[in-house]
Write a protein that binds this DNA or RNA. Structure first.
Length: 996
DNA sequence: ATGAACCGAGTTTTT
DNA sequence: CTCGGTTCAT
């Protein structure tokens, strides 16, 4: 069994606490929060200890339970669900030690845990000799930490001590003002008796992983709550029996039956001393920047106030966080009240926020599981913006404005643009989340071995349910918006629930991003620290399986080698011959190419297709079957990849689960193998096929408009919100672009100018909810220009904005200089790469292209690595933390109108989608197959939730010439009765704004 | 060998 | 139009 524990709170007898705090109230709040084990806090205080003895009784395992569980119900009148009164308590207190050591005044807070009331009374007796225990729930004693620990250990063999919020400046073990630099300095000969540390609200485990001296400690996180509302804002997850000895064993790492599974945390930037700076000078600096400035404020010339991050860096002996193998992970959260307050644009103490909180808890259950794993679709149907906010929080897509010099940091999930759009809305429409048929909760298999029983999401419709339990080989044909990933994740969780070990499950995705997303979602369900099934791309698995003895070529380098291997090919044809060869290798129709193959072998390099080919060869010689292989986006598999899936999963395919949608196969040019069902049946004739037909994304009108573009019967709409499909025609491409730009600008700027639909008050045009989707990149610039002219911020999916970060730019410049090349790469390095050291970085740089041309001749990776290393260490120039900060800063600008190719928009969704340039030759693209173009059209339409606006121009400046155009043949396929033309009224406004 | 003039086509993108 | 590749001229 697993449980959540909050091991640091205070009673009403501590300073600045809520005066109505009682154990019953705390128990009730713990239940609402999803906390199973709660510290009593203040257990050495006479009055609180009396309350503990009166209200609680020992549970026989070193914890305490309510004497009368029924009393909790009356403590939260706003909560209409039932409360079981099952919260357990652990006797605890925080002690503030103020003493002199090493010639300095030390102020240290420590947490103490005790298994029996007798132990608490005995410790109380001893500490009464030293100071007053009843003046404050958190006693202040002139007792040094080492001696306190000695007394604790002497009190009861199982009693233990945990240094509290170790990085805060004023009262902690490592505090910059009055702390120590090492555990040993603080605890002396007893340092070995300390096995856990509380990281506190302003640091997270990752920061602590910079300090190798902390590797041996478990890092716990607690709320330090002074009121019921604040319980569980940070908390710890444990597996194993709920008893004191097991808990202690889990934290000490000495238990074989209990385990510490990690924490939920605040985003540490929220802390008010996170970064360095000067409040008055409005100067905020990262530790590296501070160091570069010699610790002096560039504005006033006085020493800067150093933050927690700086203090961590001072004691750090690593340049990048390194997670010790025995350390579980963590998840960063924002308290639900804060999220609701942000969504509503109200203060977190207001009545409407409380009411909404109450409604959410009553609907979805306790807060922690809600934040961690409530299905996004349900949250969105409760309230779209709240769903979005929680989704962003889970992805870590939060806006972090780090705190400094006493100023609290801010964590937001919504941008100012979102605020403008949504801020004026009425409060949450308190409607029930859409009810999908709920099925009985799966009963846990009795012999289920997993230490951590995952819960299968309870929101699955009957089709999805079938897809989760049907035996393999199984193909699930999942149209757009039908809950593809949801179903995939649920199937994985069902396997785990039935006792399949994580390592018997392999999930294949097409992009690393998709793999990451899946791992993230699984982790959310399974909890931090749980064993996750392998989820990765075939290429990544092949790379790992083959070992890293070869340099992996980028596309350009591979082509350069191909051309060199075939000097007889005219340059004009070589590129085509190369792409043709690569596609034929993917489709298993390529004749051997000895010249190319041997040149690669000679140079010790491989290309991406080689990865797959070699792995397949290897698997044929040394089969290595995985009992359960699940394939996401199966329509994108090439025949070569199909063979690999088969090689991994065996001929009977009993463990094979494929999910995808033939209608969304738009990567034919890359060798994707056409008809999904035919391909799969070809490999496993006994394949069973299911289809998901309920679309949770789009309104009925859009779904009906999409239907003619699908080979399958129309999807069943679940959403019933308002919206529309519109078609507009314009005299010229310029008019089209300006109309779209002004339509968006007018709506964004002044809602009153929005005339498309006078009844419109929904959220469908919020910035960040609008996309303009085009067939080819070259169509993007005119729209970008028109939007900028209209003052609308634009997002273009071009290279990762992290490259504009000064630290990253410095690294790039250094590498360029050292290697004598002009460009390095447009792709962002994965943070894990930075941990892996210079060799990995060098390999990555080579993979990314441009560098191979310079280095193929010298070939040896060692030389590359050495030259790179001489150029200056990557680590010295850029820490992972800063890279992340840069990423987040970049994200602050991702809430804009998205201007994307349809291919790039695959898998995304928007409330409003504009599809311009719908002209023959552009969509369908001339020279492409009508089938593939049809699917591209379908993918684009199906991105829209509420509003889909299709436009074309009758005249377009293209390729240096003004061309007359004809409307796309696809437009007439849309049933005209569904379409509202761009009408006169709108045109009038458009004319004023845009037409000449 | 290098440079000017000429010609023809123009996607999508991940590993 | 713009880019790359080919061709033709020096």
């Amino acid at each position: 069994m697993t449980y959540w524990a909050d091991l640091h709170i205070h009673s009403r007898y501590s300073r600045a606490t809520s005066k109505n705090l009682s154990l019953e109230l705390l128990a009730a709040w713990a239940e609402v929060k999803g906390i199973h084990l709660l510290a009593t806090g203040d257990c050495l205080h006479a009055a609180w200890l009396t309350a503990i003895k009166e209200t609680l009784i020992p549970d026989g395992n070193g914890f305490f339970i309510l004497r009368d569980p029924k009393v909790v119900a009356q403590h939260l009148p706003w909560y209409h669900g039932s409360l079981a009164g099952s919260t357990r308590f652990i006797l605890s207190t925080e002690i503030s030690s103020i003493y002199t050591a090493g010639g300095r005044v030390r102020k240290i807070h420590n947490l103490v845990y005790l298994p029996t009331v007798e132990a608490a009374q005995s410790l109380r007796q001893r500490l009464l000799q030293i100071g007053n225990l009843d003046a404050d729930g958190r006693p202040i004693l002139g007792l040094n930490s080492r001696d306190l620990l000695a007394m604790v250990l002497d009190t009861h063999p199982e009693a233990f001590l945990v240094p509290a919020h170790i990085w805060t400046p004023w009262f902690s073990l490592f505090g910059s003002k009055s702390g120590f630099d090492t555990i040993e300095e603080c605890f002396g000969d007893l340092a070995g008796e300390v096995f856990a540390l509380e990281t506190g609200l302003s640091s997270d485990p990752e920061m602590n992983w910079l300090v190798s001296a902390l590797d041996r400690f478990r890092l716990i996180s607690n709320s330090d709550a002074h009121s019921g509302e604040k319980l569980g804002r940070e908390a710890n997850r444990f597996a194993g029996a709920m008893d004191f000895a097991a808990l202690r064993g889990a934290l000490a790492g000495t238990s074989s039956v209990a385990a510490f599974l990690g924490t939920v945390e605040f985003f540490p930037e929220e802390g008010k001393y996170h970064l360095d700076g000067h409040r008055a000078c409005e100067v905020v600096l990262t530790p590296t920047q501070t160091r570069e400035l010699g610790g002096i404020c560039p504005r006033c010339g006085k020493p800067l106030t150093l933050g927690v991050l700086h203090r961590v860096y001072q004691l750090a002996d690593r340049d990048e966080p390194q997670q010790p193998p025995e350390h579980p992970g963590f998840v960063s959260l924002i308290p639900l009240t804060e999220l609701v307050a942000e969504v509503l644009g109200k203060g977190s103490g207001t009545q409407v926020v409380r009411d909404t909180y109450a409604h959410l808890i009553s609907t979805f259950g306790p807060e922690l599981p809600l934040l961690l794993e409530a299905p996004e679709a349900d949250l969105r149907s409760f309230h779209p913006l709240l769903g979005e906010a929680i989704a962003r929080m889970r992805r870590g897509q939060v806006l972090r404005t780090p705190g400094y010099d006493g100023i609290y940091g801010r964590i937001h999930t919504l941008t100012p643009e979102d605020r403008i759009q949504f801020g004026t809305f009425s409060p949450l429409p308190l409607k029930e989340p859409h009810r999908r048929s709920r099925q009985a909760h799966l009963t846990l298999d009795a012999q289920q071995k997993s230490a951590l029983p995952p819960t299968i999401p309870q929101t699955l419709n009957p089709e999805q349910m079938k897809a989760i339990h049907a035996p393999g080989p199984l193909l699930v044909s999942a149209g757009p918006g039908t809950g593809k990933t949801h179903t995939l994740v649920a199937r994985i969780l069902a396997l785990l629930t039935h006792g399949v070990p994580a390592h018997d499950i392999l999930v294949l995705t097409f992009t690393r991003k998709a793999a990451q997303e899946l791992r993230h979602r699984l982790q959310l369900h399974l909890g931090p620290g749980a064993a996750l099934p392998r989820a990765d791309t075939l290429h990544a698995l092949a790379f790992a399986a083959l070992g890293e003895q070869h340099l992996l070529l980028g596309e350009d380098e591979a082509f350069a080698l191909f051309a060199r291997a075939h000097p007889e090919y005219p340059a004009s044809k070589a590129r085509n011959l190369y792409t043709d060869l690569q596609r034929r290798r993917e489709t298993l129709t390529a004749p051997p190419d000895p010249a190319f193959t041997s040149l690669k072998a000679q140079l010790g390099v491989i290309d991406y297709t080689d990865l797959l080919e070699r792995w397949w060869e290897r698997l044929r010689v040394q089969p290595s079957l995985v009992p359960h292989v699940l394939v996401d986006e199966a329509q994108d598999l090439s025949p070569l990849q199909w063979q690999l899936v088969r090689a991994l999963s065996g001929d009977d395919g009993a463990g094979v689960f494929l999910i995808g949608d033939t209608d969304q196969s738009i990567y034919g040019f890359r060798g994707a193998a056409g008809d999904l069902e035919a391909q799969a049946k070809g490999l496993w004739p006994n394949l069973q096929t299911l289809r998901l037909t309920c679309n949770y994304r789009s309104i009925p009108t859009i779904i009906r408009a999409m239907a003619p573009f699908s080979r399958f019967p129309a999807l069943h709409p679940v959403q019933d919100g308002k919206g529309e499909v519109r078609i507009g025609s314009f005299a010229t491409a310029e008019h089209e672009a300006r109309w779209i730009a002004h339509t968006i600008a007018a709506f964004v700027g002044q809602r009153s100018h929005w005339q498309m639909d006078t009844a419109d008050t929904d959220s469908s045009m919020g910035l960040g909810e609008v996309a303009i989707l085009v067939r080819v990149q070259s169509l993007i610039p005119p729209f970008e220009a028109a939007l900028r002219e209209a003052g609308v911020p634009v997002y273009r999916a071009e290279g990762d904005p992290v490259w504009s970060h000064p630290g990253v730019a410095a690294v790039v410049a250094t590498v360029q200089q050292a290697l004598g090349v002009e460009t390095v790469s447009n792709a962002a390095p994965h943070p894990s790469l930075l941990e892996a050291g210079p060799r990995a970085v060098a390999t990555w740089l080579v993979e990314q292209g441009q560098l191979v041309a310079a280095f193929l001749e010298v070939a040896a990776l060692e030389e590359l690595t050495e030259r790179y290393t001489q150029a200056g260490s990557w680590k010295a120039l850029l820490t992972q933390r800063e890279l992340e900060l840069a990423n987040h800063a970049a994200y602050q600008s991702a809430q804009k109108v998205a201007l994307l190719t349809i291919h790039a928009a695959k898998g995304l969704e928007f409330n409003t989608v504009f599809m311009p340039c719908l002209e023959e030759g552009l969509l369908p693209w001339h020279g492409s197959s009508e089938e593939e173009e049809r699917r591209i059209f379908y993918v684009a339409m199906s991105r829209a939730r509420q509003r889909l606006i299709l436009t074309y121009a009758r005249q377009r400046h293209l390729w240096g010439r003004v061309q007359r155009t004809t409307p796309s043949r696809f437009l007439v396929r849309i049933p005209q009765e569904l379409v509202r033309p761009v009408d006169e009224r709108t045109k009038t406004i458009s004319r004023q704004l845009a037409f000449v």
